[in-house]
Each structure stands twice: as structure tokens, then as C-alpha cells.
Design a protein around this nucleic acid. Structure first.
Lengths: 215, 215
DNA sequence: CTATGTGAATGATTTCACAGCT
DNA sequence: AGCTGTGAAATCATTCACATAG
């Protein structure tokens, strides 16, 4: 039985990580229904993949099931939470106090999953000083110092495309190691920083392509 | 020279489509700078990929470059817009008049790219009847009839996870052929409907995994 | 000479299929 | 008997490398 955090681990693909999140959701549902065990087949059906894929994904991190039985729902739930790093809290900064920032801020599930927004920045004087829950929007000039002071792990970037890269350049180097980018631009960052993009325009264009090609 | 819309076309992967969107952005920038031509190498650097990948992607749709020279910026811009179906307008409905819906609605770039929001629905009586720009929020009971009447192409679903599937079931069958889903659930839809997901929780979990694994 | 377009080679991911536990 | 864990096979995506056109 290999450790969850074995550092000699093979590289885990992004698709595997995405599926782990989906399995987690299925397990949370199953747990809410009071189910004890679940098979790879059931996990696959509810997670939108195949049972072989489920077993392959999980096998990258260890051996969690019982042959002939399936997986213990509470145990696998715990293991995946641990694998994904959801068994702790992450310190998050929100850069950009616009509509997207507000939507994200108000989404209480993030707090529950361990993502704690500790500070909000904006460059717009009319927004600086406003209250966001317990927080007050701070001027972006204070960003570098505040990110370091607050030991921020993850920066959520919800700013217009044309200023995104310059903000990223400032953010990188304060010790921040992960960025969730909502701006529709390809950001340049060092390999040491993890980056995910949420790009609605790109997704809409993907749908446009699909509509355009299918007849 | 093969046609852009050749129906005997090989299947195009989602990653290729995503990259086409990125190339389009690079070309829009290049065009704004007044550049005449651009090489696959330049497109690749600014789009975050390799020149071979750029050429391979484009070659799936035709032959757009000039050997020794590169690609004509305005011509390639036009071709990619055509490939992605951005040379027309799409009729969009917004289901869910919450914070995410508002953020999307206020983002003028969508209108510019040809995605026209024609109708907004919500089930919350306190939201129904409110003005959103030129539109008025309509009760979700009117959804089926309005989607058909308005000949909606794309539904943007910005509702809580627990009601997403039942709304999708109602939407599918009104002639809607594409859904952009913001709810953190795996939706079940027929193959004939195109689906893209925007899932902030999933992306944050991906960052959490990366932070957790890297030391 | 320069940069495209494309088969062939490589690499990555998914699926198959079955031995081995429970 | 049922379901996992996993090598081997198949499929899919990317990169290489070069003949070809401007």
C-alpha cells in the first residue's frame, strides 16, 4: 500500500485530477445518502467515465478498494480529500473586486471546501474601502506586502484582460504558488507556479464551433 | 485547398478547438498592431504552444499559409472566425439571474463576439420582472415556450447545482443544441447537445492538488 | 533561404481483459 | 461470484523532420 503523498510518484495528469474532483462529488452524494460502499462502476456512471478509468485513476495513489466489494464511501472520501489537499485550509486573495469577484466571494461552498478568502484588492478608488463581508477592499498598491504578510497560497485573478499579466508579474515573487485566472489571456508564469484558467469566452467559442460543425 | 466546412472532416479534438480560440486572440492583437503576416512560430509563442502544433491544427481545416512567408493576419483571422462560427450571431438565453449570471451579462465582449443574450429566466419571484438592460427577467415557467419562440441556440445555465439537471432536462427538447453550464455538477445530456462546463470549484481543487503535491 | 504542410515517430491517455483477493 | 488492481493493447495527441513552395 503506497502512501498518498509518495514524492517519488509518477506524474499525475490534469485529467486524472479533474476526475478525482468529480469522484469526490459522487462520494459526497453517496455519503449524504448513507451508502457504505460504492463500486468503480457506480462511481464511473455518476462521474461520467468508465469503471476501468476510475480504478486506474485511484491506483495511481494507492489501493483503496476491497475486491468483490468495492470502495468504502467514507474511507475513499477521506483519501481523495487528502490527495486533493482538501483536508486543510488554503489562504486565498481575490484580486479584482468586480462582478466576477463578487460572484466568487458570495459562493459559500468555497469556504466550506477550505478556501478562505483573506483579502480583496482593487485599483478602482470607488471600490477601495468598501466592505466585503468581514473584509475591506484594499488598494492594489498594497498587494505585494499584503500577500506576503498574509501568507497567501492562492491568488484569484478577476481583472480585465489588459492588466492581468502585469498583476501576475507582481504577484509571482511574493511566495504565491497558485493562480486561478479569470481573464481571457494566456498568462506567462514560472513553472513553479500552478495556474488554472476559467475562460467563459473560450468555452462559448467551443460551443459555437460545435454548433457550426454539427450540420 | 479544402473547404472550411467540409462535412467529411476528421473529428476535431477539443484541445484543437481551444487552441484555435487562442490563435484568434493572438491574431486580434496582431491585427490591432497592424501586422500583415505572422509565422506559426510567432503564433505558437504568443499562444503558448509549438509551431508544429499550430501548423497541424490549421492543416485540419485547410492550407492558409504561404511557404517562406507565414500567414496573412487578416485572412487567417477571417478563416478562424469562420471555423469557430464567429462570423454570425448566436441567440443565447441566460437561465439563472444570480451573481454569475449578472457577471456574464455585464461582460460586453460577448455581445461583440456575436453572442446575443435574448432572454433571462429565474425562479425567484423577487427577481422576476426586474430589468436587465433591455430585458426583463422572466419566470422559469415560461422557459420552454420562450426558448422555442426565440429560437435560442445556446443556454447558459447559472443556477445552483441541485436544480441544474432538472432544468437541463426541460431545456433539451426545445431545440437548444448547446449548453454552457456553471453549476458544479456532471450533467446528463443527449449526444446531440454540445456541453461545456465552467467549474470554479473544480479548478480550485486542481490548484489545491498542485500545491499539495509540489513539496 | 525561409517557413509551411504533412507523413512518420514518439509520447500520453484510455480501454481491454484477466489474474488474484475477499 | 463479484469487483479490484494492473500489465498489455489500442487509441488519441503531440513532436519531429523534411520535402516542397514561395
Amino acid at each position: 500500500v503506497s502512501s498518498l503523498h509518495s514524492r517519488a510518484a509518477k506524474r499525475i495528469s490534469e485529467s486524472t485530477v479533474r476526475r478525482l474532483s468529480l469522484y469526490l462529488r459522487v462520494l459526497q452524494e453517496a455519503s449524504a445518502l448513507g451508502l457504505d460502499t460504492i463500486s468503480s462502476d457506480e462511481l464511473a456512471k455518476r462521474g461520467g467515465t468508465t469503471s476501468a478509468q476510475v480504478r486506474k485513476d485511484l491506483s495511481l495513489f494507492g489501493s483503496f478498494g476491497k475486491r468483490g466489494l468495492g470502495y468504502s464511501v467514507p474511507e475513499l472520501l477521506g483519501s481523495i480529500r487528502e490527495i486533493l489537499g482538501l483536508d486543510r485550509t488554503w489562504r486565498v486573495a481575490l484580486v479584482g473586486a468586480g462582478k466576477i469577484g463578487a460572484a466568487l466571494f458570495s459562493y459559500r461552498d468555497f469556504q466550506k471546501q477550505g478556501f478562505h478568502i483573506r483579502v480583496v484588492f482593487d485599483s478602482d478608488p470607488s471600490k477601495i474601502g468598501r466592505s466585503w463581508g468581514e473584509l475591506v477592499v484594499r488598494p492594489d498598491a498594497e498587494m505585494e506586502s499584503a500577500l506576503a504578510e498574509q501568507q497567501i497560497d492562492i491568488v484569484v485573478l478577476a481583472v480585465p484582460a489588459d492588466v492581468a499579466q502585469s498583476l501576475v508579474d507582481r504577484v509571482v515573487g511574493t511566495g504565491v504558488r497558485a493562480i486561478l485566472n479569470f481573464a481571457p489571456v494566456k498568462l506567462r508564469i514560472p513553472d513553479s507556479v500552478a495556474l488554472r484558467n476559467v475562460d467563459m469566452a473560450l468555452e462559448l467559442e467551443g460551443l459555437s464551433f460545435a454548433l457550426n460543425s454539427r450540420q
